[in-house]
C-alpha cells in the first residue's frame, strides 16, 4: 500500500475519481454519453501531444516545435490527398516521414552544436510554421476522403470513438519504452545526469536524436489525428499545443530538469486537464477561465511536487542521521 502511495499517478487517480463523482453529482449532464464522447476525443488528441513533449522532458530538454511539426504534418497529409489525390496509406506514411525528419533535424542540431534545445526548437518552430504558411498561404484544405472522416467521427460502441485506439496504443508503447527497454532507461539516465551517463558508455548523440525523432513522430500522429477530428486540414493546427503539452507531464510529476517522467501520471494529467476544461464548460463558466485555471493547475502541481521532494529529502536525512 505504501508503495502505491509513493507513485506519482496514485494521488492524481484519486483526484480524478473523486472529482468526476463530485461533478456528476452536481451536473448529471457530465456523464451523458455525448459528453463522455467529447471528453474522450479531447483526451485522446492531447494524450499524443503530451507524450511527444514528455519524452523530450525525460532527457532534460524542451521541444517548442511540437505544435509546428503537428501543423506541418497535418497540412501535408491533407494537401497530398487533396492536391495530388494520393490514397490514405501513402499520405499517412509521408506524414510520419515528415515528422521523423523534423524530429531528426531538432535532435541532430541540438546534440551536434550543444546549443540549448530551447533555442533550436524555437528556430525550427518558426521554420516549420513558416513552411506551413508558405505552402498553404493560410488556406485550409477541405477535401478529405470519407474513410478519414469516418475514422474521426465514428464510434466503436456506446460513446467510445475510434479515435481513442491509436492514443491508447501509443500510451502503452510509451510505457513499455520508458519502463521496460534499455533505450528508455538510458534516456532517463541521460536526463538525470549527462556526464555520468556518458561515463557509463551511453551515446548522447543516439539518445538525443532518438528522443527527438520519437517526439517528432508523435507530433505527426497528433497532427493527423486532429485532421481526422476536424475533418479538414487548417494551417493553425498545433498553434495551441504548447501549454497543454507541458501541463500534463508537469501535473504528472515530471521534473523539467530531466530524468523523471511517469507515463501513467502524464496520461492522468491529460485526463485531469480535459475533465476540468469540460467541467468549466458544463458549469457555464467563461471559457477564458479555462486558461487561467490551467495556469494555476501548473503552479499548484509545481508546488505539490516541490513539497513532496522536500519531505523525501527530510526523511532520507533522518535515516542517514541514525
Amino acid at each position: 500500500m505504501s508503495a502505491l502511495l509513493k507513485k506519482d499517478w496514485f494521488g492524481l487517480g484519486l483526484v480524478l475519481i473523486f472529482g468526476s463523482i463530485l461533478i456528476s453529482l452536481f451536473k448529471p449532464a457530465f456523464i451523458s454519453p455525448f459528453n463522455l464522447y467529447v471528453l474522450m476525443l479531447s483526451v485522446s488528441l492531447m494524450l499524443v501531444v503530451a507524450m511527444s513533449q514528455m519524452i523530450i522532458i525525460a532527457i532534460g530538454q524542451m521541444n517548442l516545435s511540437v505544435g509546428a511539426i503537428g501543423g506541418l504534418v497535418a497540412i501535408s497529409f491533407t494537401g497530398l490527398m487533396e492536391v495530388y489525390s494520393m490514397s490514405i496509406l501513402p499520405a499517412v506514411l509521408i506524414g510520419l516521414l515528415i515528422g521523423l525528419a523534423c524530429g531528426f533535424i531538432n535532435g541532430y542540431i541540438t546534440v551536434k552544436t550543444g546549443i540549448s534545445a530551447f533555442i533550436i526548437t524555437l528556430a525550427t518552430l518558426y521554420i516549420f510554421k513558416g513552411m506551413n504558411l508558405g505552402i498553404t498561404e493560410a488556406q485550409p484544405f477541405y477535401e478529405i476522403p470519407e474513410a478519414v472522416k469516418f475514422f474521426g467521427n465514428a464510434k466503436i460502441f456506446g460513446p467510445i470513438p475510434y479515435l481513442v485506439i491509436i492514443p491508447i496504443i501509443i500510451t502503452v508503447l510509451m510505457w513499455i519504452l520508458m519502463n521496460r527497454t534499455s533505450l528508455g532507461r538510458y534516456m532517463l539516465a541521460y536526463g538525470n545526469n549527462v556526464q555520468s551517463s556518458e561515463l557509463i558508455g551511453i551515446s548522447s548523440t543516439k539518445i538525443v536524436i532518438y528522443a527527438h525523432v520519437i517526439s517528432g513522430l508523435l507530433a505527426a500522429i497528433g497532427g493527423m489525428l486532429v485532421v481526422c477530428r476536424l475533418q479538414l486540414g487548417t494551417p493553425n493546427i498545433g498553434d495551441s499545443w504548447l501549454l497543454p503539452s507541458f501541463a500534463a507531464p508537469v501535473i504528472g510529476g515530471a521534473i523539467l530538469a530531466g530524468g523523471k517522467v511517469d507515463v501513467i501520471a502524464t496520461a492522468f494529467g491529460v485526463i485531469l486537464v480535459s475533465i476540468i476544461s469540460q467541467a468549466l464548460v458544463i458549469f457555464k463558466i467563461d471559457p477564458f477561465f479555462v486558461q487561467i485555471f490551467l495556469g494555476f493547475m501548473i503552479l499548484l502541481a509545481v508546488f505539490i511536487n516541490r513539497y513532496r521532494e522536500y519531505r523525501e529529502e527530510r526523511r532520507t536525512k533522518v535515516f542517514s542521521d541514525e
Binding site: 524542451m62 530551447f118 501549454l243 523539467l256 477561465f289 495556469g295 501548473i298 503552479l299 509545481v302
Partner: peptide, 18 residues
C-alpha cells in the same frame, strides 16, 4: 519553488492573459 522559470512563466502567461 525552485522550479525553472520556464514552467512558472508558462503558467503565469496564461494566468495574466486570461
Amino acid at each position: 519553488t525552485g522550479v525553472h522559470s520556464f514552467i512558472v512563466t508558462l503558467a503565469t502567461m496564461s494566468i495574466y492573459f486570461g
